[in-house]
């Protein structure tokens, strides 16, 4: 639901990920890191919800 509200407010859905990995699933961990990394690279840097301390 939190992801849904963030998306409702205009934050990309692919900026927030949830997963469930057992401590024995090192390969799944690696796969998920790769997948998330690719998705976020495709989106580029985050501009929303970032606080600009110089303002």
């Amino acid at each position: 639901m939190m992801g849904n509200l963030l998306e409702h407010m205009g934050v990309d859905r692919d900026r927030i990920h949830f997963s469930w990995i057992s401590s024995a699933e090192a390969t799944k961990f690696v796969d998920v890191v790769k997948e998330i990394s690719e998705k976020v690279r495709a989106l580029g840097p985050n501009k929303k919800f970032v606080k600009d301390y110089n303002k």
Partner: peptide, 23 residues
């Protein structure tokens, strides 16, 4: 969350206030 009028602080406040009411 900062206490000022910074727009991200304001958005954070409203987001979290609402989310605490979820369901």
């Amino acid at each position: 969350v900062g206490k000022g009028q910074n727009e991200i602080d304001v958005t954070t406040f409203h987001f979290l206030r609402a989310f605490h009411c979820a369901g």
